[in-house]
Each structure stands twice: as C-alpha cells, then as structure tokens.
Design a protein around this nucleic acid. Structure first.
Length: 300
DNA sequence: CTCCAGGGCAAAT
DNA sequence: ATTTGCCATGGA
C-alpha cells in the first residue's frame, strides 16, 4: 500500500489561500483549527483514525502535509475532497465578482478580499450546533462556549505543544450532563436545542445526505426549521456553511445589518424592502455576498 | 450602569 | 399577522 506524507491540490482562478486562511481565524479563537504563520492546521477523523495536517498556499496550488503518519491513497482522497469542499475550490466565482464590480458601494471588495472563498463547515451537525451556540450572544463569547464544549466532549490529538480537536458526535452531546452544560454557561434553551438536533441525527430524521437531496432551498429550509431551536437564521446559516446553498440569506443577521450600515446602504434595520433590493442584485450568489459582508466587519 | 450581541420561542396584541 | 417579553451573560 502506497504511503505518502503530503500532496497538493491545484487552485482555481479568483482564489487566495492567504485570504481564506486569514478569514478562518480573523480575531477569533476557533478551536476547530489553528492558523499560524499563514498555515492552516486541522485534525480530521477518518476510518477510526485521527489525521492531522497543515495546509499552506503555493503559487498555483495548496500543499497539504501530514503531521503524523503517512497516508494511504484512500486517506488522501478523503482529505482532498474535504479540503475542496471546505474552501469551495470547485466553484467558478467569476459571475459573483462581476456582480460585485457592478455595485459601486461594494466594488472595492473585489480588490480588498480578492480570492476569498465561502469557507464551509462540512459537518452538518457541527454547523447547526455552532449556529445554535452563536444565537444572539457576542461572537467572542460564542467561541468560548464552543471551545468548552469541544475540549470536554470531542476527541483530540496532541502535536508538539498544541491540542487539536474533532467536533463532538451527536451522541456525545445528547448524553452530556445537563448540569455540566449549564456550568460551562450554555443557556438552558441552547442545551435543549442542541439535544434536539443531536437526537434528530441519532434517530435518523436529519442527515446531510437527505438535506442535500431536497430539491429547493425552500424545501431544505423547511426541513431544518421543523426542529425547535432552528429558526430562519440558524437554518440558512447551516445551509450556507454546510451545504453551500448559495441562494440563502440568514435573515435577521446582526452582522449583515452592521455591514450594510457601514457601506451607507441601510438607514433602518427594520427596512426589509431595502435589504431585499440590495440582495436582489446578487441573485444566486446571496450567500457569497453575505460572506463578503461579514468579511468587511473585521479589519486586518 | 446601560446597551448590545452573526436568535428563537411563546404569549400578547 | 405582528409585536413584545423573555432567556442569559460576556463585552464594550
């Protein structure tokens, strides 16, 4: 069996690894990966083993290197597919850039954030859990809550002085002690919602595969919001980040309001018609526009 | 101390 | 059908 410790993936036009890597951490402390000196470090579980690798940007490709054992052909295929999905490498985003360039207030983003891709959360359970954790509270606190949850309930691997984590399985969260979950400062509502979602994965009434098979964004949205705790914002956040459903907008998102205000495009947050007018210019690319608006909220 | 934060639910208009 | 009250707590 061939064993390799590295491989590379060619990158498309309008892609910048540096932009994507920077967006992955911004000013936040995300426990699901590390970004050090422009390299992205991440652990994954595959076939019962924990994989740990670094990703770095080269001229025409990205270079992926194992920090632990060598990889079989199957393992490399798994990682390759994971990263292509994670960084949205298979998508031609030229049309989105044309739309941005045609909208004067937003034109500058084609230069400022050139090559930023819709960074995903491939695991649907993680995407939903993270969005429930992030409901309503400030992002810094949300990242703190996620870290406490993941460090206790997720698998981990150590490399040098660093710990890397796998997001907990639904069963780990469903069986977690409610009192402990309160002690790490999750609200009782968030605990309830997290367990409802975890139970749905375990009993098979929710899966990424089935969600992806639904024919329209509306159908996928309805499928998610049937669960208590998943409203329109959470559903569309997860569709955008996990399914890469580009037609959805996480309506009500504070960050969208803030960004549009900064661009001088929104005077009143309750002016839904104005928001619809702006997004109408990005038909089919709404999620990418949202991503770029979020990007605009944090300066390098 | 006050107000807000990458919401959602349920009760009250 | 739309608005309001509430949850819950760190951050600014």
């Amino acid at each position: 069996m061939p064993v390799k410790k590295s491989f590379s993936i060619p990158v498309p036009a309008l892609f910048s690894f540096d932009e994507c890597a920077w967006f992955l951490h911004r000013n936040f402390d995300d426990c699901m990966h590390k970004v050090v000196d422009g390299k992205v470090y991440k652990a994954l579980e595959y076939d019962g083993n924990i994989l740990l690798f670094s990703i770095e940007g080269r001229k025409e490709h990205i270079y992926i290197k194992s920090l632990l054992d060598g990889w079989s052909t199957d393992t490399i295929q798994f990682i390759r597919r994971y990263i292509v999905e994670w960084f949205d490498l298979d998508r031609d985003i030229q049309v989105f850039y044309s739309l941005l360039a045609s909208q004067p207030p937003f034109q500058q983003m084609t230069e400022d954030y050139l090559g930023l891709r819709l960074i995903g959360i491939n695991d649907l359970f993680e995407a939903l859990a993270w969005s429930i954790i992030g409901q309503q509270i400030n992002l810094k606190f949300a990242y703190t809550l996620k870290r406490r949850l993941v460090e206790k309930l997720g698998k981990s691997v150590q490399w040098q002085q660093h710990m890397f984590y796998i997001f907990p399985q639904p069963s780990a969260i469903l069986t977690a002690d409610d009192q402990w979950l309160r002690e790490i400062q999750l609200s009782s509502k968030k605990i309830e919602y997290l367990k409802i979602v975890a139970a749905a994965f375990i009993d098979g009434t929710l899966s990424k595969e089935e969600l992806k098979s639904l024919p329209t964004s509306e159908a996928r949205h309805r499928h998610l919001i049937r669960l208590k705790g998943i409203g329109k914002w959470t559903a569309n956040y997860a569709l955008m980040k996990s399914i890469k459903d580009l037609n959805v907008i996480p309506h009500g998102d504070i960050g969208i309001y803030q960004a549009l205000e900064n661009f001088g495009m929104l005077a009143n947050r309750k002016d839904q018609a104005q928001i619809e007018n702006i997004f109408a210019n990005f038909d089919g690319w709404e999620a990418y526009f949202v991503l770029y608006l979020w990007r605009s909220l944090v300066n390098k």
